[in-house]
Design a protein around this nucleic acid. Structure first.
Length: 879
RNA sequence: GGGUGUGUAGCUCAGGUGGUUAGAGCGUUACGUUGACAUCGUAGAGGUCGCAGGUUCGAGUCCUGCCACUCCCA
């Protein structure tokens, strides 16, 4: 027997353990069925599950479970990302609590500490994914720094290097002074701030009392100035071009040059040029062959090229201003809106800095990645994201992949004493290559930089499947993967890079479809963040409402391309939905509705049972179509509607007279049909609510097959012949209920109903379903009207037939007149609409015949109803 | 500044190719709790679909402009 109440905590975890120990998530590699594969976007090992994951992983699990039930060979490949900066940061923070810095430890010991930490605290998120019900094949769990994936990284790196697609260059890069590493453009967040614009002047060399006026937001960088630029079209200033300005304080002469970078309309029209500390100035410097003067240390303090060595930029700025004021060269300071770059992890200001770094030639790699999408080999859903993808890919810049961190893939680069570079997969190979080239044994030192985290996750689609082992069964079976499900915020970080790396490494697309979903926001539509304190912990939600409720919420809210706002009421509503299903199952149990082995639906006789079976099959078809089209909300709402609105509200209510009646044959058939439909519900609801469906499946009967592997019904022939009769019955019941409510008839009052204007067939249906109608509409009887309607009858119209109920003494006829008047007004309004359309010659001519026909049909139906209402009004006019 | 979305009931949201009286959940009102469901049932109220034009026999849906907000890239 089922428990009286639905309590997900009692069984969710047990069910998951059972799936996992039985190996239910593993693909049957011996099967010759079609393959279906999703690679899990690897969460950070440092991570804990947030609502974004809950959405992402629910959608994937729905696709995975659906396809598994379709009988395909299904793999959901899980794993975690080492998340270079993020993880190093967490471990460093822990060490800092004990007063230790990573430098105290040294590289090796620090990395050891990180690994130890990873073993202990990492992988929390994988446990949480299990709690959500994610049916990943955990036996294949990968980590971006495990042996196989590291081999993949080395192999691709060497290949790229030897193809000339990875190179080392001294360039201006985004420098994070907290972590003392370069970061890529994507890891820089531009924030609008109100800063200051400082106006000061530089003396002109050899011309006493002559100055050039400068406006800058960063006065302290003046020590790195190597020119002042003026536009050649600047009438007021062009006479200064070719002269020299003197940098005050340090008294260095710098040229005044002509360059269009200096907009005559902005600031003073003259721009100081600091090529080593500004991306625009760097370009100007290149055009004019200007020297580069670096004024910063790696920790963003000023260096010996300035008078303020050792001071941070803010302090140095104040000192510079003071000094300029002393010299009488400071003119004014104004508020100035500006955009300042910050590190996405560190939160400190990012400084452009000249350093030696390693780059991937992204523009070359992008070509194939663009073509694959242009040619439709990989499709984005929703398609509009292709635009975003193309926009980015066509303007892509070289990708800085070196990081001056310790935690990550150390680059497979070795230097000989003279700096010659050797790039090989192993040290031994590098040594051999070096010895050969030099003709003697040379000492090699390895590059200390590690790779950007996204380099290894860029290989995820094939490295996790066994590459570089080209003979891996999994690689051969599952690559290219079927779908990638991810949020749009990592389209550049990850999706674009996987496309590039896969097209380069595998010469094939990584996935056929990329499904992009939105962000999960808080109740008010604000982005969730720890600093705002508006995050909702999925684990708490699961604790409170069950994993199924949270999953169903995510599915039901997922409409293509839109963000989802958290809504606790709604989650509670889906928990109630599970309760509803639970109780429906209990109802079946109490009425001995047990699944009948080899139950043949084509032998069902009763219309009511035929009807619900057909509806269940229609619902199945709808769910299938919607899942295949990635219309998650339509799929979820379709099942919801069927279970609650059709099965519980109508079918269960309608079969009660049968189940409580005397007809044993009808009872048996109804019990079996009920059980069949409930089983069907468990099947089609399983991808969305795997726990409650499994719990019911296992407890209602002994089964030949586990629900997780139950075949998904396909190609069914749906017998719809009973639909019309039942639709009519439902319509009659609704009309009578409406009438009762509107006329405030006491619920207990048992009424007699009479039907007129019905066809032969309709009368016969009404006779067949009389006990159901009476029970649900709370009537004493329903039969055909003989003779004329008596004047105390109120009427309601249902479809083409009229239902009359004598209410002598029960009812307030003034209220009834009012009700009928209201109905009449609505009919008149509709009739006016139909008439307007049908009298419009161009509508009749141009609209499709079907539409015109339909309009005429509606008109005549409304006219007939109007007559009925009018006659009813006339009948009770004097009461 | 460039690009991209969004604006529909009190709230949160659905409304693939234009075609009934624009739907759901929550909330709300009235009635009920009848042998699955103190997590239930029945019925109702509630919307000039952001604004203004246009295309069309017909526009929430397509086009143009405007307003407001979101996000991405500078």
């Amino acid at each position: 027997m089922l428990d009286k109440t639905y309590n997900p905590k009692d069984f969710e975890e047990k069910i998951y353990e059972n799936w996992e120990t039985d190996g239910d998530f593993k693909p049957d590699m011996k099967s010759d069925k079609e393959a279906f594969c999703i690679v899990l976007p690897p969460p950070n090992v440092t991570g804990v599950l947030h609502m974004g994951h809950a959405l992402n992983d629910t959608l994937q699990d729905i696709l995975i479970r659906y396809n598994r039930m379709l009988g395909k060979k299904v793999l959901w490949q899980p794993g975690t990302d080492h998340a270079g900066i993020a993880t190093q940061m967490v471990v460093e923070r822990n060490l800092a609590k004990e007063g230790i810095s990573r430098r105290d430890f040294g590289r090796e010991k620090f990395i050891e500490t990180v690994w130890k930490w990873k073993e202990q605290s990492g992988g929390t998120i994988c446990k949480q994914l299990r709690r959500l019900g994610a049916s990943c094949d955990w036996s294949r769990e990968r980590f971006t720094m495990d042996e196989g994936l590291s081999a993949a990284v080395r192999k691709i790196f060497v290949k790229l290097y030897k193809d000339g697609l990875i190179y080392k260059a001294k360039k201006l890069v985004n420098w994070d002074s907290k972590f003392m590493t370069a970061v890529s453009d994507l890891e820089v967040i531009q924030k609008e701030t109100v800063g200051k614009m400082y106006y000061y002047k530089y003396p002109i060399a050899g011309e006493e009392g002559e100055y050039i006026h400068i406006a800058t937001t960063r006065p302290e960088t003046m020590f790195g100035d190597t020119a002042v630029a003026v536009s050649k079209d600047n009438e007021k200033l062009k006479h200064l071009i070719g002269k020299k300005a003197i940098l005050p304080i340090i008294n260095r002469e710098i040229p005044i040059i002509a360059d269009e970078h200096a907009d005559p309309e902005k600031g003073t029209g003259a721009v100081k040029i600091t090529p080593a500390h500004d991306f625009n100035d760097f370009e100007v410097g290149r055009r004019h062959n200007l020297p580069l003067v670096n004024i910063l240390n790696p920790d963003a303090t000023l260096n010996e090229n300035t008078p303020f060595a050792g001071l941070d930029t803010q302090t140095a700025r104040q000192k510079t201003i003071e000094k300029m004021e002393e010299l009488g060269l400071m003119e004014k300071i104004e508020d100035h809106p500006m955009v300042i770059p910050y590190g996405d992890r560190s939160g400190v200001v990012i400084e452009p800095l000249m350093t030696d770094q390693w780059f991937v030639d992204a523009p070359i790699l992008a070509k194939e990645a663009i073509r694959a999408v242009e040619d439709g080999e990989t499709k984005f859903v929703p398609q509009s994201y292709e635009k975003t993808y193309f926009e980015w890919m066509r303007n892509i810049q070289p990708w800085c992949i070196s990081r001056q961190l310790w935690w990550g893939h150390q680059m497979p680069i070795w230097y000989a004493e003279d700096g010659t570079i050797f790039c090989e997969e192993t040290e031994a190979e590098a040594q051999a290559a070096a010895d050969k080239q030099f003709g003697r044994h040379v000492n090699l030192t390895r590059e200390t930089d590690v790779l950007d985290t996204w380099f290894s996750s860029g290989l995820w689609a094939f490295s996790t499947l066994g590459w570089p082992d080209e003979n891996s069964d999994y690689l051969k079976t599952f690559y290219p993967t079927s779908v990638l499900v991810t949020a749009f915020d990592i389209i550049f970080f990850w999706v674009a890079r996987m496309m590039m790396m896969s097209m380069y490494g595998m010469k094939k697309i990584p996935f056929k479809t990329i499904y992009m979903h939105g962000l999960v926001r808080d109740e008010k539509g604000q982005k969730m963040s720890k600093s705002k304190g508006n995050t909702v912990d999925p684990m708490e939600t699961i604790e409170k409402y069950g994993a199924d409720a949270l999953r169903f919420f995510m599915a039901a809210m997922e409409t293509q391309g839109r963000d989802i706002n958290m809504n606790e009421n709604r989650i509670a509503g889906y928990r109630n939905f599970a309760t509803k299903l639970w109780n429906a199952a209990r109802f079946g149990e109490m009425n001995e509705a047990k699944p009948v082995k080899n139950f043949n639906i084509s032998e069902v006789k009763l219309a009511i049972n035929k009807w619900i079976i057909a509806k269940a099959q229609e619902a199945t078809l709808e769910v299938s179509k919607n899942i295949e089209a990635f219309r998650f909300s339509d799929a979820a709402n379709g099942v919801y509607q069927f279970v609650w609105g059709t099965f519980c509200d109508w079918y269960i209510e309608m079969i009660k007279p049968i189940l409580y009646g005397e007809d044993e044959v009808a009872k048996q058939e109804t019990r079996a049909s009920f059980a069949w439909v409930l089983d069907r519900i468990l099947v089609i609801l399983h991808p969305f609510m795997p726990f409650v469906t499994t719990q019911l499946w296992d407890n209602l009967a002994s089964r030949d097959v586990k629900l997780i592997h139950h075949p998904w019904p396909q190609n069914e022939v749906i017998d719809n012949q009973s639909a019309q009769a039942l639709d009519m019955v439902i319509d009659i019941i609704s009309s009578i209920r409406s009438l009762r409510a509107e006329m405030n008839l006491p619920a207990g009052a048992k009424l007699k109903a009479y039907v007129k204007d019905a066809s032969e067939a309709e009368f016969s249906h009404i006779k067949d379903f009389a006990n159901i109608i009476c029970s649900l509409a709370r009537l004493e009887s329903i039969e055909a009207l003989s003779g004329a309607a008596s004047s105390d009858m109120v009427q309601t119209v249902s479809g083409s037939l009229t239902i009359l109920i004598p209410l002598k003494g029960v009812v307030d006829f003034a209220a009834e007149r009012e009700r009928l008047q209201k109905e009449l007004a609505q009919l008149d309004k509709n009739l006016a609409g139909y008439a307007a359309k049908l009298s419009n010659a161009s509508f009749v001519e141009r609209a499709p015949a079907k539409v015109v026909e339909e309009e005429k049909r509606r008109q005549s139906e409304a006219l007939a109803n109007k007559e009925k209402v009018e006659s009813a009004l006339a009948r009770i006019a004097n009461l």
